[in-house]
Write a protein that binds this DNA or RNA. Structure first.
Length: 788
RNA sequence: GCGCCAGUGGCGGAAUGGUAGACGCGCUGGUCUUAGGAACCAGUGGGCAACCGUGGGGGUUCGAGUCCCUCCUGGCGCACCA
């Protein structure tokens, strides 16, 4: 049975046009897919569309069209652009997430997750993007701003749907170790995001009340140094001592400070009893306490924490040293011996942590605790163009998740997108229904699912896009994980973490045998291009520029142009190269060659006119080569072709595609230098097969021309005996420095060859009257002579 | 601040601890052509040379671009994470 091989590129968002980044991505995948097909593997290589999402809605408003029309026509256009690239894709597996036959099965999965306790609804303080008028997941907030709009994110309390990704926090973390074929960088980013830390949870009794404040700390050993408590402004305790008006004012004050590291605090009336010492410590609302981490409350130990130290200084709070150090070392955050801590004196950090936890446990005021930074995934989006969440609400506020038999909940087409916010809210005809189960009036959920939900399982749906259920268990067990997943590193956390969560959740719900969705992850680098602008800071497209006497000018008005650094291609900087134009001018093969030739695929590729031109020259050169009549071979011709086959194979498997291009040059340099023309010999056939994955159109046309054949047999098996070199160039070193080399046969006799070596002038001159102390002969590799 | 990755000719980049600079671009000289974003030939790390050369300094080794320590520089990610 042939080996399955699932090769997948991250599917595109149908924004309108294919860009060069897509081309590079899909060429890399296409080379793999073509190679594996020649190897006889059962290759799956599908393509689809990540078709829901905000840009469609925004474009619809701007261009007075409909998100669906806009999206579907973009898909059509981009598909025809992809087809121009003649990629070897399984178009029969195509899917678009905005189509009913995709998202209705996603609604089924939502129900599955709900029934498994992995989807739930709660009031939560969420990240609100005021421009897009929707909630964002934590992962989508960057530096306090929305990842798409760049708008300052606001905190808002809304009832939202969540997926319980925290349930898998530990497994998501541990299984990263199993992903040997993932870049270390991505794994590190995910580890940091999950953010596991060991510590303790300690209960602080609120003075005079029968209530406690829970606090997570990684440094319970410093408990004797606690001189204040600080809580987030959103902590429940705040509501007990301040009015809403006061709280709002504090929030505003904090927001004004945002971005700054300046500490700000407000003391409240309540205080806590120190859990061990009989004293009261004040409670502050502080701007540096995160409400999304731990319990949203900390105890401040100013002597041994920088932030607490700053805060204590500003508000003149006591600083009690509990780890031995010089006073000028404060705040001292390193390991040391405990002082001023009756139970812990003389212990080091780890010993003290162990001991204090035992004590807290015994006193029932605390325990060991592992905390994760990762929060549950908020999936509700207050937008129209997404997958409807299959839930209805009754007038009493209760809700019901629909049965699978009640699906699909279709996204209505006729909506008015002109208003602010979610158009579904105003669509009473769609929204108001009578519940078929209770016969009571009810309203549909108007939030839609985050589009990252769509992309969390599309690789599963690809296996059978026509099935009348989300997927087939047997098929998933057989074909997953995806063997090679290729895409941009910008999805290192979001998409890749969500997909891993989905795979694990579905595994548990459907008893799948798959733990991880992507066995190998390859992150390709971006494409950059020089930027150009006039003195007036107008960006200019490269094709608008002419070079005169080494200076650059804008063609239309001879305005001088300055060349800037190479940056990621972007429309705003006008340094974009359009794939359509390149394909028309240079053809598919030259485009493919350039996509892989100048840099390793995981690094940045700088677009240059010389680069694409030399790629085209290579294509012409190969064409010319095969048009010349056959000549005799030389002794080493077959060996060189074998080496070529071997290298290409090795380099495709390693994703060292830039080296594949070098291999092609090396082969043709040799053949032309030696005046060996292979025309339609057996060796030509081998060469054509090997270049087929890389430059398929040329390879196919040469195959037709030379062999009158329209298909290729399998990848050539390598004659390994031919790869062995018997003649070698043996380097001779003295003290590890190269002096000369000699031609010899492998398996030489050390004594005999040394006699010859000592006769060499270069060696003789070096040795002179000195004594030979030692000779290191690494057989068939190198000889190193040590002299006195 | 923390973490990760990287630093090799004019440029992009090659080098299982064993001849540093494969291959390409660019450049120099020449050939061919009515012309060519073409092709062909020769050359191209530095230095006249002995020699010197993989960010700096140490170390391990017969031998280091590669391994270890340390510092510097750059990129990316996270960032008041208790």
């Amino acid at each position: 049975m042939s080996k399955k091989n699932y090769i997948l590129e991250m599917f595109p968002y149908p924004s309108g046009n294919i860009h060069m980044g897509h081309v590079r991505n899909y060429v890399i995948g296409d080379i793999c897919a073509r190679y594996h097909k020649l190897k006889g593997d059962d290759v799956i290589h599908p393509m689809g569309w990540d078709a829901f999402g905000l840009p469609a809605e925004n474009a619809a408003i701007q261009f007075k069209t409909h998100p669906q029309d806009w999206t579907l026509s973009n898909i059509q256009n981009m598909k025809s652009q992809l087809q121009k690239l003649e990629l070897d894709l399984d178009w029969d597996k195509e899917l678009a997430t905005c189509n009913e036959d995709y998202y209705r099965y996603q609604q089924e999965l939502f129900i599955d997750l709900y029934n498994a306790g992995l989807a739930y609804k709660k009031d939560a303080l969420v990240n609100w993007d005021p421009v897009d008028q929707t909630v964002l997941a934590n992962e989508q907030v960057i530096d306090g701003r929305g990842w798409r709009t760049g708008a300052q994110v606001e905190k808002k309390n809304l009832s939202q749907w969540f997926f319980k990704i925290t349930h898998y926090a530990e497994e998501l973390l541990n299984d990263l170790d199993k992903l040997e074929l993932w870049p270390e960088k991505v794994k590190t980013m995910q580890r940091n995001w999950i953010g596991k830390s060991y510590g303790a949870e300690i209960k602080f009794k609120i003075s005079g009340e029968n209530e406690y404040l829970n606090i997570f700390t990684t440094r319970p050993d410093t408990i004797y140094g606690a001189t204040f408590i600080a809580v987030s402004v959103n902590h429940p305790i705040v509501k007990k001592s301040l009015s809403n008006f006061e709280i709002e004012n504090i929030k505003k004050e904090f927001e004004r400070m945002d971005g700054d590291k300046e500490k700000l605090g407000y003391k409240i009336k309540l205080s806590c009893d120190h859990p061990i010492l009989s004293k009261k410590i004040p409670i502050y609302i502080a701007n540096f306490v995160l409400d999304t981490y731990g319990e949203g409350a900390i105890f401040g130990c100013p002597a041994h924490d920088e932030r607490d130290f700053d805060f204590a200084k500003k508000y003149s709070l006591p600083i009690i040293k509990v780890i031995d150090c010089d006073d000028n070392q404060l705040p001292f955050t390193e390991d040391g011996l405990l002082v001023n801590s009756p139970l812990l004196n003389g212990l080091n950090k780890n010993e003290a942590i162990k001991k204090i936890i035992l004590f807290l446990k015994k006193e029932k005021i605390g325990d060991e605790k592992i905390n994760y930074k990762i929060r549950d995934w908020g999936v509700s989006r207050q937008r129209y163009w997404g997958c409807p969440i299959p839930v209805i609400y009754y007038n009493d506020g209760s809700y019901r998740v629909l049965d699978k038999s009640e699906l699909p909940v279709l996204l209505p087409y006729d909506v008015n997108l002109e208003g602010k916010g979610n158009a579904l809210l105003n669509l009473s005809g769609w929204r108001n229904i009578v519940c078929p189960k209770t016969n009571q009036p009810a309203q549909r959920e108007t939030d839609t699912l985050d589009t990252f939900v769509d992309s969390s399982w599309y690789y599963i749906r690809f296996l059978n896009n026509k099935l009348s259920k989300p997927f087939d268990v047997e098929q998933v067990n057989e074909f997953l994980p995806v063997d090679k997943y290729i895409g941009g590193i910008e999805h290192a956390i979001l998409h890749l973490l969500y997909s891993r969560f989905f795979m694990k959740a579905l595994r548990d719900i459907y008893s799948l045998k798959v733990d991880e969705p992507f066995k190998q992850l390859f992150t390709q680098g971006m494409i950059t291009h020089k930027t150009y602008r006039t003195k007036k800071n107008e960006w200019i497209m490269p094709k608008e520029i002419i070079s005169k006497d080494g200076k650059l000018f804008r063609i239309k008005d001879s305005e001088p142009v300055e060349e800037g650094p190479s940056e990621k291609m972007s429309k705003s900087k006008k340094n974009v190269i359009e794939p359509d134009e390149i394909l028309d001018n240079y053809g598919i093969d030259a485009t493919r060659i350039f996509m892989i030739s100048d840099s390793p695929p995981d690094r940045e590729l700088e677009w240059t006119d010389e680069g694409i031109q030399s790629s085209k020259n290579l294509i012409h050169r190969i064409e010319r080569y095969f048009s010349k009549p056959m000549t005799d071979l030389k002794d080493d011709t077959e060996k060189n072709v074998e080496k070529f086959v071997n290298n290409i194979e090795k380099n495709i498997l390693n994703f060292s595609l830039n080296k594949c291009v070098a291999d092609i040059y090396t082969l043709f340099n040799y053949l032309e230098k030696e005046n060996i023309y292979l025309y339609n010999s057996k060796l030509s056939n081998k060469i054509l097969i090997c270049i087929f994955p890389i430059i398929p159109t040329l390879s196919i046309s040469l195959n037709k021309y030379l062999f009158n054949s329209s298909n290729f047999k399998e990848w050539p098996s390598i004659k390994t005996d031919l790869l062995i070199e018997d003649e070698i160039n043996l380097p001779i070193q003295i003290h590890g420095k190269l002096i000369t080399t000699i031609q010899t046969k492998k398996g030489y006799d050390e004594k005999i060859i040394l006699d010859d070596i000592y006769k060499l002038d270069k060696i003789k001159n070096k040795i002179n009257d000195k004594k030979i102390v030692k000779v290191i002969n690494v057989q068939d590799k190198i000889i190193n002579i040590i002299i006195s």
